[in-house]
């Protein structure tokens, strides 16, 4: 498969601080790659290096199979960037903003007009074309930010946490939109520290921390790398210590604890844990109410590798 972005052994320092520490990253043609990492892990820095905005200390970057430099006009023409901070011009209205940035890529006025209209429709800002950015709500502003980045129909779209401060419904619209762009042929590099978002959207995921890649693969490949596996929670009321001990002795159970009437069973690797546990409840005459299971998440993987949580709460 063709690599669209190839980052090799990239080192970037801000003074004494090393923001990227021998980072390797690859984005393949046609995929949506999720770049997942906590705040300050170097996601934005990596992107700015890829876009040849930042000087770096070591390593190489190829985009569309060519070394990326500030003079790589051809590559730049094919890239669209949706920034983490909203980059629009306050003095221009919604439509003018999109047209302005599009005009840096497309000089044919008629073609551009069409593209701008499509971008407006894509982000659903039809009713706000004449609004000034200052008069847009945070979510609408984010949508404008996205439209400005993709109006010129780039082959490679880089999105840096585009959904921060967007309500859940708009967030879903945006994620659907990105999938749609991908279906239409765009390769996507999607950056986020929201685990669920990346799980939902991306074909492959690269997890970074401290400017370094710590894991990579499809979601299931990554999950398979964790030592922990399924957790099953069941409302059981009261259990005797003896009953707990029997459960712990079951072959598929790694650990069982009772917490305020809720039993949490951490299972070992393997399938059919839930039905095996239900059978055990039956056999040992344990009554249970509500029951749910939770598969291991990327957070578990992150926790295992780095010893800290990947912060993952949607504000």
């Amino acid at each position: 498969m063709n690599s669209i972005i190839e980052v090799n052994d990239l080192v970037k320092r801000y003074g004494d601080f090393t923001a990227l520490n021998h980072l390797n990253l690859e984005v393949q043609q046609g995929e949506i790659l999720g770049l997942l990492g906590p705040n300050g892990s170097g996601k934005t820095t990596a992107i700015n290096c890829i876009l040849a905005l930042l000087r770096y200390d070591h390593g190489s970057i190829k985009v569309f199979d060519q070394a990326m430099t500030p003079a790589s006009k051809d590559a730049k023409r094919r890239i669209g960037y949706v920034m983490q901070s909203v980059g629009v011009i306050d003095e221009l209205n919604v439509r003018e903003n999109i047209d302005y940035f599009c005009s840096l890529y497309v000089s044919d006025a008629k073609k551009r007009k069409q593209m701008v209209s499509e971008a407006i429709e894509f982000v659903g800002l039809q009713d706000f074309q004449k609004r000034m950015p200052k008069k847009l709500s945070g979510g609408l502003l984010r949508r404008l930010n996205i439209a400005c980045g993709i109006a010129h129909k780039p082959e490679l779209i880089i999105l840096d946490e585009p959904t921060v401060a967007v309500d859940p419904q708009s967030r879903n619209n945006i994620l659907e939109g990105i999938k749609e762009l991908n279906r239409l042929g765009a390769t996507v590099l999607y950056t986020s520290h929201y685990m669920e978002e990346v799980e939902q959207l991306c074909d492959r995921i690269t997890i970074i921390d401290g400017g370094k890649k710590i894991a990579e693969g499809t979601k299931s490949e990554l999950i398979a790398q964790t030592n922990s596996s399924e957790k099953i929670y069941a409302e059981v009321g009261d259990l005797s210590e003896a009953q707990l001990e029997t459960l712990r002795k079951l072959p598929f159970v790694a650990e069982a604890v009772l917490n305020h009437g809720e039993l949490c069973v951490s299972c070992g690797k393997g399938d059919n844990n839930l039905s095996a546990l239900l059978a055990a409840f039956e056999k040992h005459k344990i009554d249970f109410g509500h029951i749910r299971n939770q598969l291991p998440t990327l957070n578990d993987l992150f926790l295992e590798i780095t010893g800290k949580e990947l912060r993952d709460t949607h504000a």
Binding site: L53, Y81, L104
Partner: peptide, 13 residues
């Protein structure tokens, strides 16, 4: 200086 300038700087100009 501004995110909008950053956007301008990644354009093929």
């Amino acid at each position: 200086r501004s995110p909008a300038a950053l956007r301008t700087n990644i354009a093929p100009m």
